[in-house]
Design a protein around this nucleic acid. Structure first.
Lengths: 112, 112
DNA sequence: CCTCTATCCATAGGTAATCTATATATAGAT
DNA sequence: ATCTATATATAGATTACCTATGGATAGAGG
């Protein structure tokens, strides 16, 4: 049995940006949210999560602020920027287009 | 504007295997088929295609045979093996599971 | 008090997939 | 004669992701 991937490559940034439309969250919270909403199908490993957040910061798609959590811990809370919201729109529409295209190949490829 | 990707990473093997369920095809034909069925949304670059076919050969999921095309050209025709058919099933179900999971995140993430 | 689990951040190093660029070759059309 | 489409393949760069590691603290259970 082939090893089950944790994510569909290329979709992580989109998932993070979308998750942040609910409001500010810290990295760990983002990972938990994605895991829970996906019924444990999608797991964001720490080694994928934090580099991804650095990427998003660098692009100006999110901003980060150190704050205290409810449970009294230091954590970096991320918020979507206007540019990030725009980027999310781009990624969502590209993703949808891809999925539709893949669907056509998978559906039509079986007819001789 | 972010550069539009040619493929969703991680889906190429599945697309090739599925394309071969129609019957034997050579590499160039596989790429054309995917491009056309997807209405030009998915483009399989040569530098992605041939390494992918080598991978599939090595895994025993396809077999290759040199033949002549209708137009009198030398080309390597690929056929699905039994193992390849099984692998396609695995990849299809994993893909569907991933897409469903991503759909849940994208749908539910907007509720505050 | 001590240890374990969960919460929280981050980087280094490895692997794998894809793209760009290049190389080769020929059939058929202009 | 040249251009386009057909046909295969590899090298090198880039990027994304995962594994492994390191650190730190809150709270629970013993």
């Amino acid at each position: 049995m082939a090893k089950k991937p944790d994510l569909l490559p290329g979709t992580l940034d989109m998932l993070i940006l979308k998750t942040l439309t609910r409001g500010a969250l810290h990295g760990y919270g983002i990972a938990l949210s994605i895991k829970r909403l996906s019924d444990d199908v999608l797991t964001v490993e720490e080694g994928s999560l934090y580099p991804a957040l650095q990427r998003l910061l660098l692009q100006g798609w999110v901003k980060g602020e150190w704050k205290m959590t409810d449970t009294g811990r230091r954590a970096r809370f991320y918020t979507l920027t206007a540019a990030g919201r725009k980027q999310l729109g781009i990624e969502l529409s590209q993703f949808e287009q891809m999925i539709t295209a893949i669907g056509r190949v998978l559906r039509d490829a079986q007819e001789a």
